[in-house]
Each structure stands twice: as structure tokens, then as C-alpha cells.
Amino acid sequence: MIELASAYTEGLDREWARMSASGTWWTGAQRVALAAAARAAREGDELPDVDLPAPAVEAAVRLSVDPHVDQAWVADLVARGLALEPYVEILAVVSRIAAVDTFLFAIGHQQRPLPDEGSHTEPTRELVAEATIQGAFVPTTGVPFPPTALTAVPPEGEALGDLHTVLYLSMFDMGDQALVRDDLSRIQIELVAARTSLLNDCGY
């Protein structure tokens, strides 16, 4: 079995710690449950019995297996009680576990077991007043594009940045077109990125 460099394992450890800690809109226990639902849906397994509102579970499942959602779908979740900011946090958690699970699958590792339990500390429920709808389904501070995608829930943006650095590039390195990372050139890195996105039919 491939032995992972510490940068990867430490990054995954941080992600797991974040998952089980309470966030802005969901407790750690709920975040773990969301991840569990997302993982089960992607694997085609029976969904775990989780203590979450139905729209939240629906969001986790859909974003895990078919993220090509539209405004109407998001609006329907909102109408059924899932506000946009909690939706953003669900999307963030689901996206990150997809990253980790994909990476480990790719190198032939077993899935990393989810945390046994998460925190029950109350979420902060801090709203970002500057985040508004600016063309995306969710509020952002500024024009919606990758760096602003999660600005309505800043801790999720920070988490994204960390995992993005572990798996791909730091924001600082994004401008370095001559970069070589672990003997893989930037061109090679971008080929993998582009092919992944093409296969996922990602609009961006």
C-alpha cells in the first residue's frame, strides 16, 4: 500500500477534525452525519439513519451524486426550511469529503472511517452581512467564482483553502505556471484538473 507523505496525512487529519467540530450552521455531529449521508449516497449504500432535517439530507445526497443543480432546486430547499447559508456549509462538507474519498480511492487506499461522533456544541450562526446574491444561487462577497464561493460561511472557505493546498496548489502558487510539485509539472497537473472537470461536466 502506498505510504502517504505526512503533508497529506496531516491535511486529512485537519479535515477530519474540522468535520467533527461544530461549524457555523451545523453541529459537529450533524456535519459528520452529512458526510455520512453524502458518502453512502455516492457509494450506492443505504443512507444512514441521521438526525437531520429532510432538506439537509436531500441536499447532501444530491450534491454528492449529482451536483448539477439549478436555481429552482435550491429555492425549493429554502422554501422547505433550509436557508442558503446552512446550504453552503452542507455543500462545503460534502465537497471536501468527495475530495478525500476520491484521493484515497485513486491511490488504492481504503476509505478513511468517519469520526465516531462529532461535537454537540452550538454552531456560531454568524451571518456575513456583506454577502449578497450576485449571480450565484448563494450569497457571496464579490462576484461569484472559486475564491468567493464560500464567503457567506468564512470558516468553510478557510477549510477549502487548506484542502486545496494539500491536494492541488496553494492560492499563492496558482500563478506559477512553471511549478513542479512532487515531480508533476503544472501542465500535467492541469491536464488532470481539466479531464476531471470535463468528466464531471462542470460548468466552470
Binding site: S64, S95, R96, A98, A99, P146, A193, T196
Partner: peptide, 8 residues
């Protein structure tokens, strides 16, 4: 893995 995240 990263782009599975970013695409979603």
C-alpha cells in the same frame, strides 16, 4: 480529488 471537490 481536489477537482471532485471544486466541481461540486
Amino acid at each position: 480529488g481536489n477537482f471532485e471537490m471544486m466541481n461540486r
